[in-house]
């Protein structure tokens, strides 16, 4: 497999990496850069575990080709607690017990972050709508909604 160089910004850090031509953004993050917080649940864009924020928008990184990300800005779960302190969302997830096994959690938090970026105080139904693409088998979702609502409430 041929490799090609790519330049991009991840969590405000610049990277230049060689990636296989058919690599996904998920593979680039996990295997090349070593940011393993982002998870793969299905590889088909159906579960949301690999959600990252690409140029301001949430995407399933398993569906984005790495080579399409030349010059892009990516935010992952590792950038969520940027200043060495947990973000409001991360604190709310802990406070509300909004995770169990934790495998879907990075994707959940990134989807929720993208939602709050555009809609700082979402309603219950808006949260369900925005988060529908993120699957969780453990929690039954109730606590995740509570956590996101709590942050929305704070921001308001």
């Amino acid at each position: 497999m041929n490799t090609r160089p790519i330049h991009l910004t991840v969590n405000n850090q610049g990277y230049e990496v060689l990636v296989p031509e058919d690599a996904t953004l998920l593979e680039l993050l996990r295997e090349e850069i070593g940011l393993t917080g982002t998870k793969e649940g299905c590889g088909a864009g159906e579960c949301g575990a690999c959600t990252v924020i690409l140029n301001g928008k949430p995407v399933n990184s398993c569906l984005v080709m790495a080579l399409e990300c030349e010059g892009a800005s990516v935010r992952t779960i590792e950038g969520e607690n940027a200043d060495g302190e947990l973000s409001d969302l991360q604190k709310a997830f802990i406070e509300h017990n909004a995770f169990q096994c934790g495998f879907c959690t990075p994707g959940m938090i990134m989807s929720a972050r993208a939602l709050l970026d555009t809609n700082p105080d979402p309603t219950h139904d808006e949260i369900k709508e925005a988060m529908e693409g993120n699957l969780c088998r453990c929690t039954g979702y109730e606590a995740i909604i509570a956590a996101i609502e709590a942050v929305g409430g704070i921001q308001k």
């Binding site: 917080g37 998870k39 802990i94 934790g102």
Partner: peptide
């Protein structure tokens, strides 16, 4: 009492076999 593993899980630091 809050879960013991919250910090690792909300930061993506929790290491799973695949990591």
């Amino acid at each position: 009492v809050k879960r013991h593993d919250g910090f690792e899980k909300v930061t993506g630091q929790a290491q799973y076999a695949g990591d």
